[in-house]
Amino acid sequence: MKLVPEELGQSGQELAALLKELRLAAGLTGDRLAKRCNLSQSTISRYETGSARPSLVAVEQILWAVEAPPSIVAQVTALARLANTEWRNVRDLRRKGLGSRQAELKALEVSSGHMRYFLLSMLTGLLATPEYVRASLAHSPADTSKAVAGKLERQQILYDTGKQFTFILTEQAIRFPLTPPPAMAVQLDRLASLTYLPNVHIGVIATGTALPSLPLNTFTIYDNHMATVELSTGSVVFRDPRDVQSYLDQFEGYERVALFENDAREFLATWAHAFRS
């Protein structure tokens, strides 16, 4: 099956109908199929109506239970991957409004316990000063006032000690001169101050550090159930556990070589001093 970005996340109903068709062809009731898959009957029902999105693991269990032929297995597995991967282009985000995007991110942060951010080229709004936030949106053709307010409001969640935040920043992200040097120094001071929060862990990867893999994109992982990957033209959302685990593995590799706590603060202080000079 050819992967077309605009089709990502849109195959859910087709997958649901095909799963139901396979169950009926196998002569199984929803309850019998559920028992074979070690799932509840209500879960099977939600999969078949499209009200819940089955993971690839769940789909493989169902395909095994209905004894699907190899050709059908390949078709349904491809549909399941499409259903668990969503493409969001920049044009749609702008059309909906940057403020609504901030509300969506806030809801994700409220519903997650541990959030991991790998920041390749610039800082995320959760860590940014007001001047940095405004500069990051300066080239947007839309009204950014609500987006700026939303980004700054979202920062309050950092002080919720019931949640864990881990940020891995490359030296490039820290040094990229998005604002004038004095403002960049203030931004780095803010980063250093946030390292003292008990639930916020900020790691820095210095240029020249040997890395376990080559970082290509900024990405965020919400618990172990969703990963979002940023591209210049939009973002890709992964929900399949194996895709999410792949990003968790990458993140843990970068975490092992990053500088934390006093080492990170010393690094940030050095560059803050350089910007002030």
Rank of each mutant, 00 (worst) to 15 (best):
E7M: 13
E7V: 05
A16M: 10
A16G: 00
L18Y: 10
A25S: 08
A26E: 02
L28W: 01
T29W: 03
R32W: 04
R32H: 09
A34H: 03
C37D: 07
I44S: 05
S45A: 07
T49I: 09
G50E: 02
S51Q: 13
S51K: 08
R53I: 06
S55T: 15
A65L: 05
A68E: 10
P69A: 09
P69F: 01
P70I: 08
S71M: 08
V73K: 10
A74Y: 07
A74C: 09
V76C: 07
A80G: 06
R81L: 14
A83I: 03
N89D: 15
V90C: 02
V90S: 10
G99Y: 07
A103G: 04
L105G: 13
L105A: 15
K106I: 05
L108F: 10
V110A: 13
S111I: 02
M115H: 03
R116D: 01
L119N: 13
L127T: 03
L127H: 02
R134M: 02
L137G: 03
S140V: 11
D143E: 12
A149P: 01
L152P: 09
I157P: 10
D160P: 00
T161P: 04
G162W: 01
Q172W: 12
R175F: 03
T179A: 04
P182L: 13
A185Y: 13
V186W: 03
R190M: 13
R190I: 04
T207S: 15
L211D: 11
F219N: 00
I221N: 09
Y222F: 10
N224P: 06
T228Q: 00
G234Y: 06
S235L: 06
V236Y: 02
R239S: 03
R239L: 10
V244R: 05
Y247H: 13
Y247R: 07
A264N: 01
A272P: 02
R276K: 14
